[in-house]
């Protein structure tokens, strides 16, 4: 639902970096988005195509790397990936305890862009 303002923000950041680097054309933009976020790849691309018309980034392809949700066991420090949408009775695969901290899954950033 919030893909439009998010896409607008991606475009603004990309255009700012394009100006800073004297870029004439942006071909691809690589994003890292944690699996805790609900962003739909298809919508992001559609909105981007619409918003970027007439800019240096027109036609650029958005590649989204989905960063898995990883928990770290508080007791034995083991890191392991979980599917939060099926989160029921998660136990540490090493020691069987169930106190964790979140290591990754909330990422929301632009890694880099391919440009000329």
């Amino acid at each position: 639902m919030h893909e439009l303002p998010v896409t607008q923000s991606i475009l603004e950041v990309v255009l700012r970096h394009a100006r800073m680097n004297g870029v004439s054309r942006v071909h691809a933009i690589n994003l890292a988005v944690g699996k805790l976020s609900d962003l739909e790849d298809e919508w992001i691309q559609q909105y981007f195509d619409y918003l970027s018309k007439g800019t240096l980034a027109e036609g650029a392809k958005l590649n989204i790397e989905r960063i898995p949700v990883v928990f770290r066991c508080t007791s034995c420090r083991t890191d392991f990936e979980v599917d939060v949408r099926k989160m029921k009775d998660i136990l540490c695969p090493e020691c069987g305890k169930k106190d964790f901290t979140l290591v990754s899954g909330r990422e929301y950033y632009i890694k880099d862009m391919e440009a000329q």
Binding site: V6, I10, E12, V13, Y108, I110, E114, A115, Q116
Partner: peptide, 18 residues
Amino acid sequence: MDEIRLIEIKEDILSDNA
């Protein structure tokens, strides 16, 4: 024509809002 290069951004998507 310039070659395609990889430009590092490493910036939060919502950095303006942040």
